Amino acid sequence: MSNLMRAVRAVLWSFIGLGGRRADADRRTAQVGLLPLVGVALATVLLLIGGLLALAHFAAGT
């Protein structure tokens, strides 16, 4: 599995809180590295906020 996919998987698991045991989370973090995790997390948060804003804009009908 590529490093980017490992980072995406680790971030998504941490966002929904189903990461399993702490040792598993530490292992995933060690495999990927801190900088890619921070980048993927930032991009995911921005996409989530953008999606919520677009949904609110659509729901308001403007």
Rank of each mutant, 00 (worst) to 15 (best):
L35Q: 14
L34K: 14
W13C: 03
L42P: 00
D24N: 10
A25H: 06
A25W: 04
V38C: 05
I16A: 03
R9Q: 09
S14K: 09
G33I: 12
L35W: 13
V11H: 03
L34R: 15
I16P: 02
Q31I: 04
R27A: 13
A23T: 08
R9A: 14
R28F: 09
D24I: 09
V11Y: 02
A43E: 00
G39W: 07
P36S: 07
L37S: 00
G17R: 07
A43Y: 00
S14R: 15
A41W: 00
Q31G: 05
R9D: 14
A10N: 05
G17W: 04
L42G: 01
W13V: 00
G17K: 04
L18A: 13
V11I: 03
G39V: 03
A30S: 13
G33K: 15
F15V: 03
T29D: 05
L35C: 08
A30V: 06
V32G: 07
F15E: 08
A43L: 09
R28S: 08
G17A: 11
Q31T: 06
G33V: 14
L18I: 12
L34H: 15
A43W: 00
F15I: 12
R6V: 00
A7Y: 02
G17I: 03
W13P: 00
R9T: 13
V38M: 12
V40D: 00
L35S: 12
R22E: 12
G19S: 14
V38T: 04
L34E: 15
T29K: 14
R21I: 02
W13E: 01
R28I: 09
V32D: 06
L34F: 15
R21T: 10
A41P: 07
R28P: 07
M5Q: 01
V11W: 04
A41S: 04
D24H: 11
G17N: 07
V8A: 05
R22G: 06
G19D: 12
A23H: 04
G19T: 14
D24F: 07
G39H: 08
Q31P: 02
F15S: 07
L18G: 11
A25G: 05
S14A: 13
V32K: 11
R27D: 12
L18Q: 11
A7S: 08
D26F: 08
W13N: 06
A30L: 12
G39C: 14
R27E: 10
A43S: 01
D26G: 11
V8H: 01
A10H: 06
R28D: 07
L35M: 15
